[in-house]
Design a protein around this nucleic acid. Structure first.
Lengths: 230, 230
DNA sequence: GTGATGCTTCGATTAGCATCGAAGCATGAA
DNA sequence: TTCATGCTTCGATGCTAATCGAAGCATCAC
């Protein structure tokens, strides 16, 4: 009864609506200031400050002071993955906060998840990389094969720089809407950044929705090696 | 801000200490009655009843009436996996409920996780099955290869019966102490049941700890194809 | 039937915590 | 320096929810 980690503490941290809203907002991957998070959660700055303090002490957020601003982001990918798992459960029970509307459909199609691509487009990307032998799966470790390295560099990604960073290159992240994996890790982030650079897709300003241009969608499909019928 | 699933509702369900204790107790995989869960959580039966109602409505528990008893178990494996993810986060931040003692060490070595084997022994089993080509990993789908099927049946498992059941044969489950996958799904449960049948290991009565006999440990290692030095 | 056991419902109490106004304290701009 | 902006701390308020006693309602044993 009293062995094992104390899940109640962190679950109750996530369990407050205001804090949950902040965390959800941070799932987009951008660091946000205390004021922005307060607005996101619909509370005053004082209240937000108190919440942020708790989240920080609980190890869920990583703060960064810059002048008189204080930026917050999720502490690490494990936090993001746990939040996705909770979203999966919530979606399962039908606890969607809004009626499934156009926004919801767009979210399921493509969204940003801690700076990498999620939703249908995300899992399709992952599947394609695996089936073409660019990613190898062994236990939880995902690794980039040599042919995968070539593919990625031809797509315009500086692999050396990624490998020099201290965060893991490849990770899997369970997608709550698709219920399968998509690619996370620094490579996942780099791929999505490159897709943005190429102008194939753009993030919505106020949500996690990612919108592909018609051309971008076609190019993306071609990249995956699919015959395309728009 | 208000798109996506409502994680606050379920997180707050898990976030109450009494409910978290009940859920943790149910991670052992056995169905428990309301009274047993009340005792597990250290609260009266009335209070427990109210909590259990909420967990049931929230889709986290699956009730089963039997006469004047009401048995509860976790609703599905997704719930168990989310709880493991939360345990991982909690352990990360150092939120262990007790000082790491002998019990904790035993938990990390081998424990039961929703009726399958977890901890160091669990991940070693998984690794061995994968590296010997008995399990194939493709995206999130894990499948048993034909050589794997032979291996499993030689171990004394009725594969036909498992396949007839409606729950998935193979699943991965992220281990909070090892931070890697072990095998879940009906096959994972069957393997552990068989290990119990053979007398290789036994569950602790009051915790999730699994204790291997010296002979059982040796046999287990031999099963994994390891040279054994006790 | 009677009594015992297991669970649920009701009602009252209590404690914890989210909330915000007001004041304090930095940082940056003029 | 003076003022504005962004965040934190303090204190008071109010609401929510956990808790348990007591009563109610099934089920089982006899």
């Amino acid at each position: 009864m009293k062995d094992g980690p104390d899940i109640a503490r962190i679950a109750s941290l996530i369990g407050d609506p205001a804090r949950a809203n902040m965390l959800t907002a941070l799932m987009a991957g951008k660091a946000l200031t205390a004021s922005e998070l307060a607005q996101e959660a619909g509370i005053t700055l004082q209240t937000a400050s108190s919440h942020l303090r708790k989240l920080e002490l609980g190890g869920l957020l990583q703060p960064l002071r810059q002048g008189r601003h204080k930026y917050f982001s999720l502490a690490n990918e494990e936090v993001a993955q746990t939040l996705e798992a909770l979203m999966g459960l919530a979606a399962n029970v039908g606890l969607l906060r809004t009626r499934p509307g156009p926004k919801d459909k767009a979210l399921r199609e493509a969204r940003v998840c801690y700076n990498h691509l999620a939703g249908n487009m995300g899992t399709r990307l992952f599947d394609s990389l695996v089936s073409r032998g660019f990613l190898r799966l062994a236990d939880d470790e995902i690794s980039l094969t040599s042919s995968g390295a070539i593919f990625v560099q031809e797509f315009g990604i500086d692999l050396g720089q990624l490998r020099a960073g201290r965060s893991r290159l490849c990770r899997r992240c369970l997608d709550w809407s698709e219920r399968r994996s998509h690619l996370a890790g620094s490579l996942g982030r780099a791929l999505f950044t490159r897709i943005e650079e190429l102008g194939w897709a753009a993030r919505d300003r106020e949500s996690r929705v990612v919108t592909f241009t018609p051309h971008g969608r076609a190019a993306f499909n071609k990249l995956l090696g699919h015959q395309e019928a728009i």
